[in-house]
Design a protein around this nucleic acid. Structure first.
Lengths: 133, 133
DNA sequence: GTTCGTGCAAACGGTTTGCAACAAT
DNA sequence: ATTGTTGCAAACCGTTTGCACGAAC
């Protein structure tokens, strides 16, 4: 049985060919893709998919908590398959975004902020990846 | 003597009427404005300013380190008059962005991230402002 | 009289929307 | 038959660009 289809069904989403292709692709690649990147890449395997369907599908998956959007790049939103709290590092040379595990960093002091009801937070780091790839 | 004009001169920028109006407005308001918001608000005092000039001016001021851009909202960049390290809180109800002083939060663990050369980082918090206004 | 700055309109890129054709139930 | 899904094209919105007019050195 197909895990991607099961995920969609579990959220009450009809597993159409296009939706399965989109979700399957995102779960496969490790990158944080923009909608247009998803479109281009999914089209290789599923040529008859339209821009509108990709956008519709991605927004649907976000609404159903299978994906999250992140505001990390100028001009475009990226979709994150990791829906649990974590931090981000953005390589300024390549633009590539890396997930940093929640446990790798510790933020303190946020409880003493008066008047701010924090629903969620993350550390956003920018710089350069060094060494390996 | 005018402080705004002095700031521009110090950076070798010709203090034209439009540039002074843009910078003066940004230094006056406390908000993190988008370019179009700057345009709309500056036009009240300086009606004969064009969209292109506002965008040109803002980009120039960023290039000369008088402003910083921040990627915090979907679909638009905001301009930050605070060019020193600090954190941000975004009120999800109003969209308003608040500066959080660098000293209010402490992040630890970032030195032990192997392979990541961090040039800068900040904590981005989202939630609701409580109480006063 | 060059250089620099401005205003306008067109172009651009990411995203959304309206709508007609088409499945699926 | 009704509802949900897709593809296409047009619309939209923030931003950039090309170009001609005008101001400043």
């Amino acid at each position: 049985m197909d895990e991607t289809i099961a995920m969609l069904r579990a959220r009450g989403i009809q597993p159409t060919q296009q939706r399965v292709a989109v979700l399957r692709h995102i779960l496969k690649v490790m990158e944080h893709l923009s909608a247009d990147e998803v479109l281009a890449q999914v089209r290789r395997e599923c040529p008859m998919i339209s821009r509108a369907t990709v956008y519709n599908t991605l927004n649907l998956l976000v609404r159903k908590d299978l994906l999250r959007t992140q505001i990390l790049k100028e001009g475009t939103v990226v979709f994150d398959r990791n829906v649990s709290p974590h931090h981000h590092f953005i390589d300024e040379a390549s633009g590539r975004i890396y997930d940093i595990p929640w446990s790798a960093l510790k933020v303190s002091g946020e409880k003493s902020l008066e008047g701010y009801e924090i629903r969620e937070y993350q550390v956003v780091m920018r710089g350069r990846r060094r060494g390996q790839k």
